[in-house]
Design a protein around this nucleic acid. Structure first.
Length: 269
DNA sequence: CGGCAGGTGCGGA
DNA sequence: TCCGCACCTGCC
């Protein structure tokens, strides 16, 4: 299926319309399943009222929380797809991640055309299992080839149940994810926030993120990860990682309109 | 040409 | 639990 999402509402009265493009086999049952799945992936039923109330009185970042009101952890992908993205993000610049992603999609993805667009759908775990590590390395993904193989094998063998993970508590889900080859604390953080909508305790801050938080929170070059983490958890409690993501997103949004010298030095495209 | 990038697995303290 | 190290590749 190809989907087009249209905004039909306002912040006060949110409403969207989903237009579905398909080549047959779309029935009423499919429609309900699709709606439920989209509601999960984009966390459409998130209740952010308590979060809004709390952040509205934040001494320092209240304007940030106001500007992004309604934002929540979400993503359009399946867990497998997001995990592959996570593997391709590791230890790479954005440019290189894009290059690896395009190489893989052209080799193993399916190009679909709908709504006057041509997009790639990712391969399935089973399909990737028939690809050798050597073939992957030829597409310049480096040591990530092994991760892609092992993750695909785990999913193809039914060892990862996305729906079971959705029902788990934060810590259990994190433990299960980190047991997978290629998923460490940073990829787990991305998955837990984007795919599972856990927004409570901050467990891990990657070095490059730590540098950005250091500037934003302390106006210093580098503050210890443990201190940033503890401060965030103390200040924002059950909403610590959601609050952190608001503040993090905001600085990148500001970057589009104003020059932030220190930020330019911290990021490489 | 070394250093490093939106990390991770592994072996050893 | 924590630490140091190797690891594909491409850009600076």
């Amino acid at each position: 299926m190809g989907l087009r999402v249209e905004n039909l509402g306002t912040s006060a009265r949110p409403s969207i319309r989903i237009v579905v493009f398909h080549d047959g086999g779309f029935e009423d049952g499919t429609k309900r399943e699709l709606r439920d799945e989209l509601a999960w992936r984009f966390h459409l039923d998130a209740d952010l009222r308590e979060f809004d109330r709390r952040m509205r009185v934040d001494a320092r970042f209240a304007p940030v929380f106001r500007r992004w009101r309604g934002m929540r952890g979400s993503n359009p992908y399946t867990l497998y797809e997001l995990m592959i993205v996570g593997a391709l993000l590791q230890n790479a610049t954005v440019r290189r991640t894009v290059q690896m992603t395009e190489a893989l999609l052209h080799a193993f993805g399916t190009q679909v055309r709908f709504d006057r667009r041509a997009l790639f759908a990712m391969w399935t775990p089973a399909e990737l299992c028939r690809v050798s590590e050597h073939q992957l390395r030829e597409l310049k993904v480096g040591y990530r080839a092994k991760m892609i193989k092992r993750l695909s094998a785990a999913f193809a063998a039914g060892e990862v149940d996305e729906f079971k993970l959705r029902a788990m508590d934060h810590e259990s889900a994190r433990r299960e994810l980190m047991a997978l080859y290629g998923v460490g604390p940073e990829t787990a953080r991305i998955l837990l926030g984007s795919a599972f909508h856990y927004h409570s305790m901050v467990r891990h801050i990657a070095p490059w993120e730590g540098k950005i938080y250091s500037r934003l929170f302390y106006n210093r070059r580098m503050v210890a990860e443990s201190r940033i983490r503890d401060d965030l958890n103390r200040r924002y409690g059950a909403y610590a990682s959601l609050a952190a993501s608001y503040i993090f997103e905001d600085v990148f949004w500001r970057r589009r309109h104003e020059h932030i010298a220190w930020l330019e030095k911290e990021i490489r495209l």
